[in-house]
Simulated scan of single mutants.
Amino acid sequence: MDAALVGLMGTSIGATAGFSGAWLAQRSQLRIFREQRSHESEVRWLNEKRELYRDLLMAMYGWHDALVGIWNDEESDNLFEVRSKAITLALEVSLIAKAPARSAVQEAHRGLLNAQPLILPRAQRTSGPEPLNDVRRTLTAMEEALRTELTQAG
């Protein structure tokens, strides 16, 4: 009778250990699967962010260059186009970027908007430093913030 009880206890312990091991293995597999999906999603978003950030930088620098052209009395027919594109892309980036990059984009955007009234009314222009000097600094800071976000995500 003792042998039967020992056998029954051994079988129960073995079954419990087997069930627990299977449960732990399944949990581990599910966690690995979730992490893989999360990583794949981040990589996909990283590629899309890279393209969006590149387009934003090009548009912001284009807006800056158009304003510099107007300041230097050169013809700049594309100010409206590049400004509209830059504003649209800045809004898109502000929806998906992390806080440091988002604030850098907003500061550069604000700098361009503040410099524009000083440049556009040609009759009221005074001599002095180009009003876009600070804007160039904010654009560089924005570029660095976007680059940092992309490298940290990768």
Rank of each mutant, 00 (worst) to 15 (best):
R122P: 09
L112H: 01
M1A: 03
V105G: 05
R125K: 05
S28W: 07
A59N: 03
Q124W: 09
E130Q: 12
I87M: 14
P129L: 12
E81S: 08
G128Y: 00
T88R: 13
E130M: 13
Y61A: 00
L8V: 13
T11Y: 15
L150T: 02
L118V: 03
A66F: 08
L56Q: 02
Q124H: 04
N72K: 15
L120G: 02
R147P: 06
V82I: 10
N133A: 09
R31I: 15
R102T: 02
V68G: 05
E92V: 14
E74D: 11
W45T: 13
L57S: 04
I96P: 12
W45G: 08
P131T: 08
D65S: 10
P100K: 01
E130R: 14
Q26K: 14
V105W: 10
H109W: 07
Y53H: 09
L52S: 05
I70A: 01
A145H: 01
M60D: 00
R122C: 05
F33V: 05
M9G: 04
E130G: 04
R54E: 03
L139I: 15
D77G: 15
F80W: 09
E35P: 00
G128I: 01
S12N: 01
N133E: 12
S12D: 01
S28V: 09
A141H: 12
A4R: 06
P131Y: 11
V105N: 01
R147L: 13
L8N: 05
I13T: 02
N78Q: 07
A97S: 02
E107K: 08
D2F: 13
D134V: 14
D55E: 06
R125T: 02
G111F: 06
A99V: 05
E144G: 10
L120K: 13
L30V: 11
L52V: 12
S41H: 11
E75M: 11
A86L: 11
T140N: 07
L120D: 06
W23R: 15
A145G: 07
M58I: 14
A104V: 02
S94K: 14
P100V: 11
R34I: 11
G21W: 12
A97P: 08
L46Q: 05
N133P: 04
Y53C: 06
G7V: 14
Q116S: 10
V135M: 07
K49N: 14
G128H: 00
H109T: 02
F80D: 04
Q36P: 08
Q116C: 02
N78D: 06
V105A: 08
L132F: 09
G111W: 07
E51G: 15
R147C: 09
T148Y: 09
T16K: 11
S94E: 10
A101V: 11
V105I: 05
N78S: 09
F80L: 13
E107P: 08
L57W: 06
N78K: 14
D65L: 07
A141R: 14
G7W: 11
S12G: 04
E144I: 10
R27L: 06
A3C: 04
H64G: 02
V135T: 12
I13M: 08
R136N: 01
A22W: 15
Y53F: 15
A104P: 01
M1F: 13
A123C: 07
T148S: 15
A25S: 05
A145M: 03
G18F: 14
A141P: 09
A104W: 00
Q29K: 10
L146M: 07
E130S: 13
D55M: 05
F33I: 05
E107D: 11
